[in-house]
């Protein structure tokens, strides 16, 4: 299994893990879950689309990151997974 991890659990950051998978799976933990869950999910889906990935498992542990941070962390995790 290929895996890539990026980011951190510092405030305003997110720790994102991407793993190869049979199907698309997105798991989100967030300190602002009730307020921003849908927005975080949308950013993840959009980023996966840009990266042309459909069957991966994404685990996002969010500490209040803004959209661009989540996107950057996910892109890095994907790149690291592909290099692994």
């Amino acid at each position: 299994m290929k895996i890539g991890i990026a980011g951190s659990l510092e405030s305003n950051d997110a720790l994102i893990t991407v793993k190869s998978s049979e199907k698309l799976e997105i798991i989100i933990e967030s300190i602002v879950y009730d307020f921003f869950y849908e927005q975080i999910k949308a950013v993840i889906l959009d980023t996966l689309k840009t990266a042309n990935l459909s069957n991966v498992c994404v685990i996002c542990k969010d500490k209040g990151a803004l959209d661009y941070t989540i996107r950057a962390r996910l892109l890095t995790a994907i790149e690291r997974m592909e290099k692994a």
Binding site: T69, A72, L75, E79
Partner: peptide
């Protein structure tokens, strides 16, 4: 690698 992507996305 993460820093340059973060800065690029931040600026975008």
């Amino acid at each position: 690698d993460s820093a340059r992507k973060l800065v690029a996305e931040f600026l975008r």
